[in-house]
Amino acid sequence: MRPTRDLPSLPPLPAGRGLEAAGAGLSLLWVLLVLSDVFLGGETRGVFGWVLVLLMAVLPVVLIWGVVSTLRSVHALRDEAARLQATLETMRAAPVPAQIPAQVRLAARSEEPPAARQNRTTTARPQPEPPAEQPALALEPEEVPPPLSIADFIRALQFPESPQDKEGFRALRLALADRTVAKLIRAAQDVLTLLSQDGTYMDDLPPEPCPPELWRRFAAGERGKAIAAVGGIRDEAVLALTAARMKTDPVFRDAAHHFLRTFDRTFAAAEPNATDAEVAELSDTRTARAFMLFGRVTGTFD
Rank of each mutant, 00 (worst) to 15 (best):
T242V: 14
G231F: 04
P207I: 09
W30E: 10
L29G: 07
P60S: 09
D190Y: 02
A175H: 05
A268H: 11
E281F: 01
L10K: 03
R245T: 05
G46T: 04
L29D: 03
F267Q: 12
G42D: 07
A243I: 00
D198A: 12
L148W: 12
P131E: 12
A115S: 07
T298F: 06
D204H: 04
M91D: 09
L71D: 05
T122M: 11
S36A: 15
D204L: 02
L13Y: 03
A94V: 00
V74S: 06
S196T: 01
D254W: 00
T266A: 11
D302Q: 13
L32G: 12
V74E: 14
A187P: 05
P212N: 09
L194G: 02
L40Y: 02
A98Y: 06
F301N: 05
G23D: 06
R253D: 09
I185Y: 07
A243F: 00
Q197C: 01
A255Y: 00
L157H: 14
T121D: 12
T70Q: 13
V31C: 03
L195I: 02
P146D: 15
T122E: 05
L214K: 12
P211T: 11
I227L: 12
Q164D: 14
F294H: 01
Q134K: 13
P272G: 13
F291N: 04
I185C: 08
P163I: 06
I64C: 10
P272A: 09
F218E: 09
R117N: 00
D198Q: 15
D203Q: 03
T262L: 07
P113L: 11
L205E: 04
R179D: 10
F267A: 10
A107H: 08
A156F: 10
A288G: 15
A288L: 09
R296T: 06
L174V: 02
L35K: 03
D6V: 15
L32Q: 14
D190A: 10
L139A: 13
G25Y: 13
A151H: 08
R234Y: 00
L59K: 01
V230K: 04
P3Q: 08
A82V: 13
D204Y: 00
A270C: 14
V58K: 10
E112T: 13
A188H: 06
F252H: 05
D152L: 12
G42Y: 07
E281V: 04
H257G: 02
F169I: 03
D276Y: 01
S69G: 10
I185H: 08
P3A: 09
P135S: 10
A244L: 08
R109A: 14
R289C: 07
T242F: 05
A277S: 10
A243R: 14
